[in-house]
Simulated assay, not measured.
Amino acid sequence: MITLYGIKNCDTVKKARAWLEGNGREYRFHDFRVDGLDRALLERFEAVLGWETLLNRRGTTWRKLDEAKRENLDRDKALQLMLDHPSVIKRPVLETAGKTLIGFTPESYASEL
């Protein structure tokens, strides 16, 4: 089973969902804002992808954070920041049997799924 993690209103998540549906892929959608995000799930993502990859430094939420929260990040500080502000996680995150993907392009989904 495929699980797609993200935020419902995110344009990239919408594109990933449309691709999955258009290609007949069954999936479960987990909205960080509705379904939540716990440390165990975040650490599972981080173990595969690394916190630097998970952290979206290009988004609006990141730019709106106090500079003090953005400085001197290490793994623990970054994970706490993502728990406090799930919208700073790069989206979508897709999990399927043995694979974890981050971001979306039609080409990456076609080759990996």
Rank of each mutant, 00 (worst) to 15 (best):
R44F: 04
K99E: 00
E26K: 10
Q80V: 05
G6P: 01
E95D: 07
K8E: 13
R75T: 10
R91E: 05
R70E: 00
R58P: 09
G36R: 10
E67Q: 08
D74L: 02
I102L: 00
R44S: 13
F104W: 03
W62S: 11
R75K: 12
K69D: 15
L101K: 01
G36K: 10
L65C: 08
P92T: 03
G98N: 00
L54P: 10
I102A: 01
P92M: 00
P92H: 06
A40R: 13
D84W: 05
E21Q: 14
I89G: 02
Y5I: 03
I7F: 02
K15T: 01
S111T: 12
S111Q: 15
A110V: 10
I7G: 00
R75S: 07
D76W: 08
G59T: 06
A47H: 12
L73D: 01
E52P: 09
L20E: 02
Q80F: 08
G103A: 03
S87Y: 05
W19S: 07
T105K: 05
G36F: 07
V88D: 08
R28K: 12
M82R: 01
I89D: 01
R57S: 10
Y109D: 09
R70K: 07
W51C: 09
N9K: 12
V34T: 14
R39Q: 14
N23C: 03
